[in-house]
Write a protein that binds this DNA or RNA. Structure first.
Lengths: 205, 205
DNA sequence: GTCTATACATCGATAGAC
DNA sequence: GTCTATCGATGTATAGAC
């Protein structure tokens, strides 16, 4: 916890400042999620948020240019959480098994936090569009799914479209009708099997 | 346009008033949809809405107790539109064909109006929950779908859950990634065939 | 960076006159 | 039912001290 500078360690000072700043931003985003769970995603008040992080409302502008910029940071954060949520998945050599686990995770992830799901997968905040930097994280996740599909021999655009619709459908129903439960999570394997059977039955192109 | 009362036609006056009132409410709801298409569902301003229907903002409260009550009227209206959109579907005796047409209609309906889809199928407005009366209309539509499934020999809860997820997935992807288009509408038949094949392959209970 | 103080426009909602 | 007037809260933004 020493605040003393090491001689010759000059660059460490701005680094420490950057670390502190990043930590504060992380705290703000975390509290913003907490607020959204209480008042809805669109119901976040910047004054309430400032209270939670021991700041005055104008001081939030030292970290975010606008409320939409806060949503953008939350969007990036949520997508990073999604990547982390599926990070330990290692291919077993059985594509059907891998896809099933992948789908289960996605549905569970959405079910775990409805507001997060709303921000990541629904366009609900008027005027909000993710920045290219934040969107890149979302693309990274999509690529991970595409790689799994590729390993299962799925690459045609219509087949990929079908798969994304299946994932979206399971998550949507899970979130809307059984949040926190597993009524649709439980159908992940069935859906993947059904999907692969359908795709493999199509004539090769 | 006579305002004179007919002798002995006393009950017709409150009736006419009720009709006028209902017509005004219908106009307000219609303009609310138009506004939501421009500014987003959550972006509706009661002042803008009042302007569109030649009222001052507080006068809207003669028709709706709150903004949430307006959303409730829109929810009921949207579900009535959905019922009307599928009203001319008559069973052909071919359940697969009937289900396909049903799914196509649902997806197209959602694709036609993203904000309407958002209000009907997503929980996006903080604090909004449909009233029992409005929700009953939604249930009526669900029952229509359940009847079609029954005709196709589908009645198990897991199978119905799977079907609703398939519908939700197609509509979600269509709305999110190709609004107004038909990229996922075009997969309706494929999805229904895939679904019925899967369901009929399960052991009878 | 953070604060106090303040400003502005907009919002949903209410009171009370007519 | 409709109006005018007004309220409190909000998002947004800035000035200026420390």
């Amino acid at each position: 916890m020493s605040e003393a500078e090491q001689p010759g360690a000059e660059p460490s000072v701005p680094d420490r400042r950057a670390v502190r700043r990043a930590a504060k931003i992380a705290t703000i985003v975390e509290e913003a999620w907490a607020l959204s769970r209480a008042d809805g995603l669109a119901g976040i008040s910047l004054r309430d948020l400032a209270d939670r992080v021991d700041l005055r409302q104008p001081s939030l502008y030292a970290y975010f240019d606008s409320k939409l910029a806060l949503y953008d940071a939350m969007f990036a954060d949520g997508n990073r959480q999604l990547l982390a949520y599926t990070a330990d998945l290692t291919p077993t050599g059985n594509p059907e098994q891998d896809l099933t686990e992948f789908v289960s995770r996605i549905v569970r992830f959405s079910s775990d936090d409805v507001e997060r799901h709303q921000l990541l997968f629904q366009r609900t905040i008027p005027g909000f569009e993710p920045s290219p930097e934040s969107y890149a994280i979302a693309i990274e996740f999509l690529n991970r799914g595409a790689a799994l599909l590729q390993a299962a021999g799925v690459s045609r655009a219509e087949d990929v479209d079908l798969f994304t619709a299946l994932c979206a459908g399971l998550t949507h129903q899970q979130v809307a009708n059984d949040p926190g439960g597993d009524r649709w999570v439980a159908q992940a394997r069935r859906v993947v099997t059904m999907f692969l059977t359908e795709v493999r039955q199509q004539p090769r192109e």
